[in-house]
C-alpha cells in the first residue's frame, strides 16, 4: 500500500512540474551562446541611402526582418519605434529589413503605423539577405554587438519596449566590446 501511495505522489509531482514548465509568454531576447559573426550585407533604405553592416562596427545593432503582410510584424513595429526613441541616442542602431516588398508598398504601410517608424527601413527586394541569415520565419530579430557578433535572437513578435528587453540592450550597450 505504502509503495502505491509513494508512486502516486511521485507521479503527481512529476506531472505538476511539467505543467509548471508552461510559463507566460516572455518578452526578452534569447542569448545566442556561440556568438557567431553576423553576415555582412549592403542594402538601401527607403530614401536610397546605402547601409553596410560592417560600417556599424562599434555600435549595437538590432536587425528586424519583417513584411507588411505579416500580422506579428505589424503588431511589434510600433514597439520597435518606442525602443528606438528610448535608446536611439546611445550608440544603438535599429535596422528593419523588409522581405521582398517595394518602397511604395512599404511607405503606404508604415504611414499607417502609430507611432510611425523613424528608424531606417531597408529593402531586401530579392530576399537574398534574408536567405543568407539564419531566418526561418517572420518576424525574426537579431542583436549584433559592437564586435559584429550575433548575441541575441528573438523568433516571433515581441514588445520591444518591455522592461526585460530594454534591460538586456542597456546592459549590452554598457559593455566596452
Amino acid at each position: 500500500m505504502r509503495r502505491i501511495v509513494k508512486l502516486l505522489v511521485g507521479i503527481s509531482i512529476v506531472l505538476f512540474a511539467l505543467m509548471a514548465g508552461a510559463t507566460e509568454p516572455k518578452q526578452g531576447l534569447t542569448v545566442v551562446a556561440d556568438r557567431p559573426e553576423a553576415r555582412e550585407f549592403s542594402l538601401k533604405d527607403m530614401d536610397g541611402k546605402g547601409w553596410r553592416l560592417s560600417e556599424l562596427r562599434g555600435k549595437v545593432v538590432l536587425i528586424n526582418f519583417w513584411a507588411s503582410w505579416c500580422p506579428p510584424c505589424r503588431r511589434e513595429l510600433p514597439s520597435l519605434e518606442r525602443l528606438w526613441r528610448l535608446l536611439g541616442s546611445e550608440n544603438f542602431v535599429v535596422l528593419a529589413i523588409n522581405a521582398g516588398e517595394d518602397a511604395d508598398m512599404v511607405f503606404a504601410f508604415t504611414g499607417m503605423l502609430e507611432p510611425a517608424p523613424t528608424f531606417p527601413i531597408l529593402l531586401d527586394r530579392d530576399s537574398s539577405v534574408l536567405g543568407n541569415w539564419p531566418v526561418k520565419g517572420l518576424p525574426t530579430t537579431f542583436v549584433v554587438d559592437k564586435k559584429g557578433r550575433i548575441v541575441y535572437r528573438a523568433v516571433g513578435g515581441r514588445e520591444f519596449d518591455a522592461p526585460e528587453l530594454v534591460g538586456q540592450l542597456r546592459s549590452l550597450l554598457r559593455k566596452e566590446h
Binding site: 510559463t23 516572455k26 534569447t30 506579428p72 526561418k136 523568433v155
Partner: peptide, 11 residues
C-alpha cells in the same frame, strides 16, 4: 522546420 527557444513562436 524551426528551433524555438523558450518564448519563441511563429505564425
Amino acid at each position: 522546420e524551426q528551433d524555438f527557444e523558450p518564448g519563441d513562436w511563429n505564425q
